[in-house]
Amino acid sequence: MLAVEDLTAGYGPVTALDGVSFTAARGQITAVLGANGAGKTTLLRTISGLVRPSRGSVRLGEHDLTTVAAERMARLGLAHVPEGRGVITELTVEENLRLGRLVRLRRVGAGDLDRAYALFPALAQRRRQSAHVLSGGERQMLVIARALMAEPTVLLLDEPSLGLAPRIVVQIFDLLASLVADDGLTVVLVEQNARSALSIADRGVVLNLGRLVVSDTAAALAGDEQLRHAYLGF
């Protein structure tokens, strides 16, 4: 279980995140929703150690992650897929995937690559090509596949649907739902596309101007018309 307590962070004098607390249960998808500038991305960046919190704590199981550096998070089972598809375009598709598994102590053969290609057949055809040639949807698949190579227990996903065709979004969300169901992965999903996110999430957290507005089950959030109009835009 990922537990965030009173998390506060900012950039210089600007407070982007103000006393946010929530928990993401194991084997569930927790959607983080809110308008632009609500603090969603900062929340993920603070959890994964890219931004230092000025107050509050982040715990994963019995580990206190609050002061852990970003480069150690992957070893502790936390994977963060940042916004804007962090494919390293100078590397090939397969090199990107290999990069994902380097943190694992147990050396494995090509088995895990095969698993990634089975999940994302589109990547298998392009394994030797530069990641530069991938489409937006393929890039999103690659970064998710790369994050999974480390066999994380928690996956932080920042706007995976951004700029993708609805058909591709459905495909990616279906895959997420099956990963959670099959492997007990814990997912924290940041989305502007609140309707789609709530359709696969178990719980939702709504942020506004850096503060937590409400935290409830996805069904309750989707059913609250006032809240939807005020913060979720649908």
Partner: peptide, 24 residues
């Protein structure tokens, strides 16, 4: 080598590399 892969990754994208556990 894996070390070479890490060096290339660190050169091209420091933030992504850090998130993947590379000591940039």
């Amino acid at each position: 080598t894996d070390l070479g892969l890490k060096m290339r990754a660190a050169a091209f994208d420091q933030e992504i590399s850090r998130l993947l556990g590379v000591r940039v």
